[in-house]
Amino acid sequence: MDDGVTAVVIEDDDVVRDLLIDLFESAGVVAYGAASGAEGIEAVRAHDPLITTVDINMPGIDGLETTRRVRDRSSTHIIVVSALTEEADAVLALSAGADDFVAKPFRAREFRARIEAVLRRVKAEAGSTEGVSAPAAGTVPPSSIGSATASADASILVIGDLVVDRSTRIAARDGVDAGLTRTEFDLLAALMETGRRVRTKEELALVVRSRRGNADTRVSELETRTIETHVAKLRRKLDDDPTAPRYIETVRGVGYRLTAGAET
């Protein structure tokens, strides 16, 4: 990878922390270790990492609270690495803002593959935006009803007051960045790209997975529940009330789609 790509490893176990740092550095990523949640939050602020790993059971600020605070400050790709292996633990971690969950003990080669998948995705996104310039002020096209409209710049999708720029990966309402995580942005873009066609939870899980370089087509119940969690968080950030949705509606027992109409 290019110089400047960094990772932060928040882990109180010295052996595990050193192993994770070695895995990042073997993938060409400069990694910084932190032995506590407080140190990790500061390291994320200082180094602006592409990827951050967080242990759950740590003294002081635990991993869930650390994940929440990191997510509030950064769009870094958060991987929770934990000895807690119950489904509820994974759901809690993802609800706190994590993008991925890895159970201990983990396989070094598998974890390295996860790192490389994130790096490939970032490289692909960078390549797709080469030569794409930001639209001038006032050039955002008018909204359409019931579907997302592609602007003259094909990287931009619009519905009502919601503008999604796939080149910069920014989603904004009334010009204000909604602060979406990578997963939330991918889900929103996928829904806007297909409009009123229903996207099943399984299909959305595969969309998120494929954009991280994983071609596996098996979807677990945990992954579909994770999609529900991410969509709920996405709606909160968009100020989208599930009982009277402006952007995303639930098709009970199936999945999600754009609403039939949008406010202009």
Results as ranks from 00 to 15, higher is better:
R112K: 10
A83C: 06
H77G: 02
D72W: 14
S143K: 00
L222Y: 11
A215Q: 09
R121Q: 10
V132H: 03
D2C: 11
E86M: 08
E184T: 06
D2Q: 15
D186M: 08
V80H: 13
D99N: 15
G97E: 00
V29R: 10
V30K: 06
S151E: 15
R225M: 05
L50K: 02
D99P: 12
F24H: 13
A90R: 13
E125K: 03
S155K: 01
V198G: 11
D14S: 14
R71M: 05
R225G: 11
L222P: 10
Y32W: 04
E87V: 13
D241F: 08
E193F: 00
P142F: 05
T217N: 15
A27L: 05
L204I: 07
D62L: 03
D22I: 01
L162T: 06
K123R: 12
A152H: 03
D18E: 11
G146N: 01
N214Q: 02
L191T: 11
P49Y: 07
V219I: 13
T66H: 09
V16C: 04
E25N: 13
A83N: 12
V140P: 00
V44R: 02
A7G: 03
S220R: 02
G4N: 14
K237V: 01
R218D: 08
A43S: 15
S155I: 00
K201V: 07
I41Q: 14
I56G: 01
